[in-house]
Design a protein around this nucleic acid. Sequence first.
RNA 1: GGGGGCGUAGCUCAAUUGGUUAGAGCGCUGCCCUGUCACGGCAGAGGUUACGGGUUCGAGCCCCGCCGCUCCCGCCA
Length: 606
Amino acid sequence: MKRTHHCNELRRAHVNQIVTLSGWVHSRRDLGGLIFIDIRDREGRTQTVFDPSDWAKERFEQAATLRSECVVSITGKVRQRPEGTNNVKIPTGEVEVMAQSFEVLNLAEVLPFPVDDPEVASKVNEELRLKYRYLDLRRPEMARNLRLRSKVANTTRSYMEEQGFLEVETPILFKSTPEGAREFLVPNRREPGTVYALPQSPQQFKQMLMVAGVERYYQLARCFRDEDQRADRQLEFTQLDLEMSFIDREDIYALIEGLLQRVWKIALNLEVPTPFKRISFEEALNRYGIDKPDTRFAMELVDFTDDFRASTFKVFSGAIANGGVVKALNAKGLAGATQGQLETMTEYAKSFGAKGLAYIKVENGEWKSPIVKFFNATEKQALIAKLKIEEGDLILFAADQWLTACEILGKIRLYCADVLKGQGKLTLPGDQFNFLWVIEFPLLGFDREQNRWYSSHHPFTAPVTEDIPLLKTDPKKVRGQHYDIVVNGVELGGGSIRIHQPAVQKTIFEELLALPPDVVQARFGYMLEAFRYGAPPHGGIALGFDRMMAILCGTPSIRDVIAFPKTAKGTCLMTDSPSAIEPKQLRDLHLELKVKQPPPASAPEA
RNA sequence: GGGGGCGUAGCUCAAUUGGUUAGAGCGCUGCCCUGUCACGGCAGAGGUUACGGGUUCGAGCCCCGCCGCUCCCGCCA
């Protein structure tokens, strides 16, 4: 019996046809005389009916033994359901299949957790879901995520092809470039002591493709970073990686806006307006305290540096005298914050090196605060005017160096938003997507501990042309031609116009990043050489594909959009990897273990 | 590397200040049931309270350790 239709296909138009459905027993309702078996496949489910008058007693009893998740083929005649028995919850609910014959293709033991009940299944311990991922993926919600991912990948590829991009695969076995994220290393059997590294991104290869004259490259590229994980970070993840020649930033903006517009239309049937808003790094920090602002709610930071420059409150005026700033935000309606909530916010402030967190609770027409007694009338008036203070508000202050003060309040702003959401005072519509380009990042940051400059993005980012003279005089002021695409507070991706002149690249490596020439030669020599043979101006971007899918699927964790994700500790609970290896494998690789090797999985526990 | 949360039946969860035989719903097994779709009814089985110690007359509960999952900070050019 070969299947003739899938389980989401039959409608009234199919009535009287003989059909065969194949799939899993989703549920069985045995009424004694009459048995209903819902058969489920990837597409949906269909009700089949076993009527004893159609069957030999023995065969009918066999049908009664079919239980959840057995794999079956059922053949029968499609008919309209009797009056009043339609199931409006499923698309096939107007018809049913009167079973005439069935074949059990495989039995199923009782599952470790239910896959047929979304309410229960969505709450199942993730450890169990990961161990039995093949069952977890049977759940319609997870299957939907996989399907949407495939659809979006497909949409992305068509769009990129339409735009003249070539999909090119780059190596997974790459070389170690120990700047940046920790890498996964692969020992080389052929030359003891040497290793490959798995790429953190195809960055260098895609730039070489530009030198190669590919002009427009893209790839759904697997990337690897051996860092600790998060809900939105896995050891291996997928990026839409692309690079273009003979373009400027505007071309990238337009390309990505077009792509996201199409993806959102196809995945969610939503019209995304373009062009996206743009905000400079500096403005993002000033207003939201973070370089990936969630602009769906305001609660913006307000500057009070000028108002408190001469204040008798030394915590504020002192910070300003030290070259710092005073900033505040108004958490509207949060005057009732608990002691614990205030402590959490104070901890945020302290984690940035602040001594504490100044606040004002506006309750019963009164300003309740340990610091308000230090404020004079003018200062109070400035607060009321700029923060629009009203009954029930909670005002929070940061007085510190500019970046630190912004970041403290940025954290607190997000925390307050979470609290307000929990109290139902802030509601963000599920179909609101605030896309935003964050631009004009500083090209370099300064590491006080190591007393050296580092690239805030990566060392291939081109400076803004008019800032190039500042490279040697005031590196801190140099802006990079870098851009991040942000949606609802999530960094969806980032990229830049790259350096294509060997001299500029060399200056960055050797003079600013202070890499010794021999190190530069060993790591990047081939790039510098390549740039000498006619490198076109070029730039690109990479979008976190898993993150984008998580947003589209409405889930907080990228694990829900990756078929076989790893745990926070980097293990695969289904296959039990990583695992110990045989001594012979170590010998082949010329490796010796300094730690006691864990016992092979088959050995009994010691 | 650090901080928080969780771990009780196959699953989801209860269990008063530390006090009787650790309960419920779902699932499972058996019987009954011809229009169910969260089918219904009756009966039943199912527990090393993650694991190892400790305190106590007595520990699911308190303490120490350890394992696992998870969230966050650091980290992620």
